Amino acid sequence: MAVPLSILDLSPLVAGGTAGDALRRTIDLARHAERLSYHRYWVAEHHFTPGVASSQPALLLGQIAAATERIRLGSGAVQTGHQTALTIVEQFGLLDALHPGRFDLGLGRSGRQRQEAASEIAAVKPPEKERVVDGLLIPEHFSWAPIHVSKRSALLASLLAQPGARSLGLDEILDQIEALLAGPYTDDEGNEARAVPGEGADLQIWLLGSSGGESARVAGERGLPFAANYHVAPAKVLEAVEAYRAAFKPSPQLSEPRVMVSADVLVAGDDESARRLAAPFGLWVASVRSGKGAIPYPSVEDALAHEWTGEERALVDDRVRTRFVGSPATVAERLHTLQRVTGADELLVTTITYDHADRVRSFELLAKEWS
């Protein structure tokens, strides 16, 4: 029996479009996802990206919840380094108060990448070799470290946090989130604080990670479900799920590990049509990996007219080759391979196209084939 399929949406802008257009397309796509029986619909948190409108997950999820009835909704992921535990609990507590029992609180690390990037650059390591594991491509690792230590990165970080603010580690902020949800929150002297709304909210907490580092370890040790990013960091996906399972301890939430794995997909009526629709993806990835932020998604015609340099192709090669593009049967077969190799209990798929109708059609074709 096939594992459940869920959707991750970045609310992408397209060339010539607006943020309002992108957000309205997200709400429309969520309605289709519910109709097509996708299990969850998650939205991302990205900042300073001209081509992505999903910057405030809780605000966007409230709009989606009002436009749907039953599909489970969540964040993929709230960036914990940019908010306090209280603001996170209040935001998602408000959502749960209005639409009870429908929300996943997906959390991701942020705020300490600059310090970690400096350490990564200092520790010179030989590049990891590309390999194929039981049919699944595991490419060479792409390092974000040079981008994280750039002057632009420092500027963006300064705008995302109050001066002198300290980013908490995952364990520390999770302790606070869980205490506020259970309520009341007390200090060593017995003073109390309550999150209203938030206290008692029916939220499922997930951790998301792109490696076998802190997120995977903390999720396992705390017995929380874990989402690993094949679509962002395909080189590290097996490391991430293995580290999570190795660290797992049963909890009141889970008696055994629960893993969701993401994938970039694009489905069309046949392989050739899908490859044509997929042409802009490389340009979009190149903009992300340049450190300037995702550009509005180009049209197919503009993408086909682009003259690629060898340096540009090398920058995006691993992401292009690990995107699952083709007919429904082709993509479903590759997703089954991803699920088998990672042992995923659920798959989280994300799709970007220039034309919204093509994106809706991609999810329709995949849902029909998967079922």
Rank of each mutant, 00 (worst) to 15 (best):
A2M: 14
L5K: 01
L8Y: 01
L10A: 07
P12E: 04
L13G: 00
T18H: 09
L23H: 05
I27Y: 00
R35T: 13
L36H: 13
S37L: 10
S37G: 02
Y38V: 11
H39A: 10
H39Y: 14
R40Q: 06
Y41W: 08
W42C: 01
P50C: 04
A53Q: 03
Q56V: 15
Q56P: 00
L59S: 03
R70E: 14
L73M: 06
G74D: 11
A77K: 00
A77S: 15
Q79E: 10
T80H: 03
T80C: 10
A85V: 12
A85S: 14
A85G: 11
L86S: 12
F92E: 01
D96C: 06
D96R: 00
H99R: 05
P100G: 06
G101P: 04
G101N: 10
G108S: 12
S110W: 09
G111L: 09
S119C: 03
E120R: 15
A122Q: 14
K125F: 02
E130M: 10
F142N: 05
P146W: 04
I147T: 13
S153Q: 13
L155E: 12
L156M: 13
Q162H: 08
A165S: 15
R166C: 06
L168P: 00
I173R: 02
I173W: 04
A179H: 06
T186P: 01
T186L: 08
V196M: 05
A201H: 02
L207K: 08
S210Q: 14
S211Q: 10
G212L: 10
A216R: 01
A216M: 15
E221S: 11
E221Y: 01
L224Y: 04
F226L: 12
N229G: 15
Y230R: 00
Y230W: 10
P234V: 10
A235D: 14
K236V: 06
V237F: 05
L238M: 12
Y244H: 10
P252I: 08
P252N: 09
L254C: 12
E256I: 03
P257K: 08
D264C: 04
D264M: 14
S273A: 15
S273R: 15
R276C: 11
A278R: 10
V285C: 08
R289K: 09
G291Y: 11
K292D: 13
A294Q: 07
V300N: 11
A303T: 05
L304Q: 15
L304S: 13
A305H: 07
L315T: 14
V316K: 02
V316T: 11
D317A: 13
D318Y: 05
R321P: 03
R321N: 12
R321S: 07
R323H: 12
R323V: 02
T330E: 02
T330A: 14
E333N: 11
H336K: 15
G343D: 02
E346Q: 15
T353Q: 02
Y354S: 10
D355L: 07
D358C: 04
V360P: 01
F363H: 15
L365N: 05
L366V: 01
E369F: 12
